[in-house]
Design a binder for these strands. Structure first.
Length: 252
DNA sequence: ATTCTTACA
DNA sequence: TGTAAGGA
């Protein structure tokens, strides 16, 4: 929130040279030839500037870097250059700290982010499905689950493939699953239990899918698979309803 | 002289 | 996590 972008060039800084001929990305140029500082401009910051923008001290920034909580900066001789990616990461860290997370926990989360990103890209999570992915910021995800987005839970969600990391945003693989999970948490179910249940459901669903695929493969043409797909979902939906009736009415 | 690292408190 | 000291 409280960002002081304007104060950057306003004050007479102690470094008279400023940027030492750094080949920066192209500025937002209008047709009139004027350049204006676009918000969220992709530029680089030295340590002191990044720390100011992130609202932390230089020492803390260095500390985070030693713990591997932020990626190493671009080194130009002795000077460390950070970019907006680092800034976004620092803001996420601050937000998580305010939510009571520990530094080591955030370090786990960070490594989970990176491993999850690699795993997601390696596995090529492109599946033909009706489920629509939803993009959201880490903060938005935390809001969905009432502060239950612990590093452990996030790692589990990454493991399950529920969420992947895309740049600085998180992608949940299914809007329906996201909303249902959030609802369960709001109803008082711990997110860890939701994820554990999700893992079991995943296994049973895989078994059901294998069963239907087998039946369809042996008795119908392969080109009919897509057309018959809703039948399989209807069967499971109906059977689950009946099973829930039995469970929730017979047992007190 | 400035920026960053190391080490100590 | 602050700070003093030293290397580049």
């Amino acid at each position: 929130m409280a960002e002081d972008e304007a104060s950057e060039g306003a004050r007479g800084d102690r470094t008279a040279k400023g940027r030492t001929g750094e080949g920066r990305k192209a500025e937002g140029r209008t047709t009139e030839g004027r350049t204006h500082p676009a918000p969220g401009q992709a530029r680089e910051y030295r340590v002191a500037e990044l720390a100011r923008k992130a609202g932390i001290t230089e020492r803390t920034l260095r500390f985070y870097r030693e713990r591997g909580l932020i990626p190493p900066p671009r080194r130009e001789g002795r000077i460390a250059w950070y970019d907006d990616h680092h800034l976004a990461r620092l803001r996420t860290i601050s937000a998580l700290l305010e939510r009571g997370h520990t530094l080591s926990g955030i370090a786990d989360l960070t490594s989970a982010f990176e491993s999850g990103r690699d795993a997601g890209e390696a596995l090529g999570l492109v599946e033909p499905t009706e489920e629509t992915p939803v993009r959201l910021t880490p903060e938005a995800l935390a809001d969905h689950f009432a502060g239950e987005v612990t590093p452990e839970n996030l790692a589990a969600a990454l493991e399950l493939g529920y969420v992947t990391v895309s740049g600085e945003e998180i992608v949940h693989i299914s809007r329906r699953l996201l909303e249902v999970s959030a609802s369960l948490v709001r109803e008082g179910v711990p997110l860890a239990d939701v994820l554990a249940a999700g893992r079991e459901v995943r296994e049973h669903a895989d078994a059901l899918a294998a069963l239907f695929a087998d039946v369809l493969r042996t008795h119908t043409a392969l080109k009919d698979a897509d057309r018959l797909r809703p039948l399989a979902k209807a069967v499971v939906d109906a059977e689950l309803s009946l099973a829930l009736d039995r469970r929730l009415t017979q047992e007190p």
